[in-house]
């Protein structure tokens, strides 16, 4: 692992009376792929959302590139997410009215890129992920695997430094899931992006450089899968 890019220190987050995170601490290196695993309700997704700056923790610190993410305004966190982070969710969550290519181009349009250039980048990413044949299809016409490839392209099109993936293969069959995961990790590694991968599936976690187990809102570090292999 090179230098620490993203870190959480004693992060706490509650929803009403339910404490989702009770002092989670972890760090993620530049270009590192980290899997966050744990049982249902252990706070995996909440941790991911805190690290991505979508949620603001009630206590503790989240640092990105040496900056306090939790102290940034909503506006600054939004800008940071748009420019530096990519997000892939379990169900793709694409905009249903836009074509696949338009969905991928959307983050670039928000960054004031020229329309033609944004569409060219979108098509290039779709081609790279093997989804160029569905570029003009709408999300409703895509299979689960195709929709996830489009979502990955959307997450990568801005050249993010960190990709957050919340159960990206959770709604897919094994074969489609493997393809989507390979596409995500290959593209992320080629772009030198770090990946935070939330999953409950050990097969998925095995693809990561390092695994972090979360239980009852607290991180339990374990040995890396690579290190455990003789």
């Amino acid at each position: 692992m090179t230098g620490v890019l993203l870190a959480a220190h004693a992060v706490r987050k509650a929803f009403g009376r339910t404490e989702a995170l009770r002092g989670a601490t972890l760090s993620i290196g530049d270009g590192e792929v980290v899997a966050v695993t744990g049982p249902s309700g252990s706070g995996k997704s909440t941790l991911l959302m805190c690290l991505a700056g979508v949620l603001r923790p009630e206590a503790g610190r989240v640092e990105y590139g040496g900056r306090r993410l939790d102290e940034l305004s909503e506006r600054d966190r939004t800008r940071l997410r748009r420019r530096e982070f990519g997000l892939v969710l379990q169900f793709g969550q694409l905009v249903p009215e836009l074509t696949a290519a338009q969905n991928v181009a959307l983050p670039l349009l928000f960054e004031r890129h020229e329309r033609a250039a944004a569409m060219r980048s979108a098509l290039a990413w779709l081609e790279r992920l093997g989804a160029d044949d569905v570029a003009s299809a709408r999300p409703g016409e895509l299979s689960g695997g195709e929709a996830q490839r489009v979502a990955i392209a959307r997450a990568l099109v801005t050249g993010p430094r960190v990709i957050f993936a919340d159960e990206p293969t959770g709604a897919l069959d094994t074969v489609s899931g493997d393809r989507v995961l390979n596409a995500l990790l290959t593209a992320a590694r080629a772009s030198y992006a770090s990946v935070v991968l939330v999953t409950h599936d050990n097969r998925v976690a095995a693809h990561a450089d390092r695994e972090i187990v979360l239980r009852d809102g607290v991180v339990e570090p374990v040995a890396s899968p690579a290190a455990a292999t003789p």
């Binding site: 991505a52 979508v54 909503e74 997410r81 982070f85 969710l89 694409l94 905009v95 249903p96 928000f110």
Partner: peptide, 11 residues
């Protein structure tokens, strides 16, 4: 899809 856009950095 709106929540996803917000998470991706749409204000």
């Amino acid at each position: 899809s709106i929540a996803a856009l917000a998470a991706l950095g749409t204000s």
